[in-house]
Amino acid sequence: MEEQPGLSDQYRTASPWPLLVAVGFALSEVGVFLDIFPIAVGGILLLGGSVAGILGESGYTRRPWRTLAFLGVGFAVLGGALVATQLPGSSVGLLEIVGDPNGIVGRGLAVVVGGTMLVVAGAVSQAVGRTQGV
């Protein structure tokens, strides 16, 4: 055991992300399951953002903004798949069902919207960062 009590300042023991990951997870779970659109979208934004943040902070990914966009794609695909389960086989009923969503479609759309916002945020920030040379 190598601790040197009172001076273990060799490594950082603080990170803002775990709290946000947990709250994001809780909010998105509640929002999606109970079909509360604003909470679902906000929760997914927070979850995606904080997961990208924590992965970047701990060195698992090199570019947090790109990770954010990838996570967004994942959410969007997941939500899209949920919506797709409710589409009638051949006819193009997408607009109808989006206009008057049932329980499953409403939930799927929330996930799609959250995911898309993550993608946009990731792409825009990446572009802005590049122009600023960061």
């Binding site: 055991m1 775990p18 809780a26």
Partner: peptide
Amino acid sequence: GADDMAFPRINAIAFWLLPPGALL
């Protein structure tokens, strides 16, 4: 004789899931 847990951040996430859990 470990410096910390194997995954300190996951450790913190695991804790912070509990207060929302209790509130719910």
